[in-house]
Structures are given as structure tokens and as C-alpha cells.
Design a protein around this nucleic acid. Structure first.
Lengths: 125, 125
DNA sequence: CATCTGTTCTATTGTTTCTAGAACAATAAC
DNA sequence: GTTATTGTTCTAGAAACAATAGAACAGATG
């Protein structure tokens, strides 16, 4: 799995990493049951600090996407295990983005099309 | 227009304010051509610092949503004035959210439904 | 036993966020 | 024309966050 970190981005490194891991799962590059590299190995690969990777893992665990088994590894959870709070959080995160899309002049159709394009782009992998 | 600021949120105040202004425009509570309160008056209303409101205004201007006319006020732009860079930025922001939705187990249909619900919720105002 | 694992602790550095106060120049109001 | 208001700019400080670094621990794996 190829991870691309941009140190000068306004998005924190630990968030970039979390997002790309999520994208990797969505694309099927990583699958439920698979385990992520150790925080040390991953940090070494990416050229970042161990604690930064650790923070990413804990963010993913908070989102319910992986399970960190101490002294063993970080394992991708099954989609079945998602809960209502994840849905509520996602809705809150969609709202400002959709509002901005409307304000910027996009129609409902255009927004749904954009979302469809992104979904299909992910799925065809 | 009612603005609700949560000082203890993990979302910065200036971003909360920007988001709610955007939502207000999307809902039609504020319209293109309308002007926003002065940074001082708004800050006083909200109980925050003038510079925080100022930062919100500049974020909105960067997004192409308002135009700050020095010594005059901040005016809501028309939707026609949006540009390609806004679209690119929005696409980048949709991506991680959609990927997470898929990972968490939502189907394409469910995602499109959620987006539709949010759009209609905004539009019916 | 030795290694590797995630965890925890202290520490430092730089950035961001928020508040604060003051001053400036141009516009608007009277 | 004077006054008040406007957004802008500057310095400054506090607090939180982001990222790095090094060390140590205890449990699992080989």
C-alpha cells in the first residue's frame, strides 16, 4: 500500500495517514482481518515519528475502523461492526461540505453526480 | 440569523462561524448581495474576539463566498462567481468522507440518500 | 532467552488558536 | 467639517495542538 505524506499540508500528518488508510480499505487494497504494520515499522517507512503513527491508529480505532490489540497489532474491523454514533458523526461532517457546495452554485443533481463519481472511482479499484 | 458557538468544540471558533454563515446562505436566511455585520459588532454579539470574526470573514473570502470591501463591509457573492478551484477543493474534501462512509459499511445507495436528505433539509428552509 | 509489540512517560520545538489593545486611513453619518 | 464606524495592521501573550525524540515497561512471539 502506497502512502503519500505531505509534510507542508495544512492537514496534520496523523490525519493524512488515517485518511489514506481508510481510502485503502475502501478501495480493497487492505481488507477486514488484515493487520497494519507496527507503529515503529510504519513510522520508519514513512519517515515520521512513531508517535504520529500511533496517533493515527488511535484515531482509526476511535472511528471504529480498526481494533488495536495490545502487543499484537492493529486489525481492520468488519463493516458490520459500525455503530450509530459513526453515522451521526458522518452526518455532521457532510453538512458543512454540502452547504458549501450549494452556496458555490452546485445543484442537487451536480452534487449527487460528484459523490457518485467519487464512489465509483473508489469501487472500481 | 442565529449563530451558535461552542467554545469547547474541537472545531475552531472561526471555522464554526464560517460554517454557520455558509449554512445560512445555503438555507436562504442570508442572500447574495446582503452584507454581514461588522467584525466588531458581530464579535460583540457572539462574545468572541474581533480578530476571530475577522479570520472567519477572510476564510469565507478565500472560499469565494463573500467579498470584503474595505471600510464598507462583507458582502455575500453570487453563486455564479464560483470557480474551478472551488470545485477541486470540494472534491478533495468529499473523498475522505465518502471513503469512510464506505468503510463503515454504507452502500452507494445509502450514501446518496444521506446526501439527498441533507440537501433537502437545507433547501426546505 | 531475545526480539518485537503497543504503551507510557518526560521533554522540547514550532504552529495554531484565541484573546487583547492600540493605531491607522477611509467611509459614513450627523 | 467633525465624529463615529469601518476593515486593516501590528505587537503581544496564553493556551492548546502537532510533531519529534529518547527512554523504559510488560506482554506476546519467535
Amino acid at each position: 500500500m502506497i502512502i503519500r505524506i505531505e509534510p507542508d499540508s495544512d492537514i496534520p500528518i496523523y490525519e493524512q495517514l488515517s485518511n489514506q488508510i481508510i481510502e485503502g480499505i475502501a478501495r480493497g487494497v487492505i481488507q477486514p482481518g488484515d493487520s497494519l504494520p507496527s507503529v515503529r515499522a510504519f513510522a520508519s517507512d514513512l519517515g515520521v515519528n512513531m508517535h504520529t503513527v500511533n496517533k493515527s491508529y488511535h484515531l482509526l480505532e476511535k472511528k471504529g475502523i480498526i481494533k488495536i490489540v495490545p502487543k499484537s497489532g492493529a486489525i481492520i474491523s468488519s463493516p458490520q461492526d459500525f455503530n450509530q454514533s459513526s453515522l451521526d458523526r458522518l452526518k455532521d461532517e457532510y453538512m458543512p461540505l454540502i452547504a458549501e457546495s450549494l452556496v458555490v452554485g452546485m445543484s442537487q443533481k451536480q452534487i449527487l453526480e460528484l459523490v457518485s463519481i467519487i464512489i465509483n472511482d473508489i469501487k472500481k479499484n
